[in-house]
Amino acid sequence: MSPETSNALIVELARQLRLRESWCGETHLQKTAYFLKELMKVPLSYDFILYKYGPYSFDLTEQINILRADDVFRLQPRGNYGPTIIEGKHVSWLTNQHHEIIKRYQKEIAFIAEQLADKKVADLERLGTALYVTRENQTTIGAIERAERLHQLKPHISLEEALEAVQEVDTLIEKACMAMQ
């Protein structure tokens, strides 16, 4: 999938998140995009690594800069938190060009928005990293081992929180399988 097509899906993801009253800052978009790619298998062009607050894509950051330059996205400072990403003047210029692909992945995007829109950055960091350690081990390993790995990678997340996150991700994986059947 080309970066421009991926960007159109990200614009739709941001819209769906905001519809469900997500704060929708860059970190929210980064983590939900990771779930969209890894959990729902939407072939976004962005490459993710484990970095700031869990899985992170420098490609996506770069594309958000481009979307801001094209006035598809704008940053809106709000409250005491980081800025919210809102639609810019030229948002329909991009979405109109890619409405077919947006339609094709509508179900996947809606699922992710439904499941994650109400999560805060700290929740998304835990869940995103839990999915990362689950995907890291192609062979199935137990929840406790994955929680230990999560805690090792992100020591500020306690073992208890890590275990909860791994269990929540397992539930999310099951839900995703059912939703896509």
Binding site: Y53, Y81, G82, K120, V121, A122, E125, H156
Partner: peptide, 9 residues
């Protein structure tokens, strides 16, 4: 730590 993001990272 980026507390404004709700994280201790």
């Amino acid at each position: 730590p980026a507390r404004y993001e709700g994280s201790d990272e």
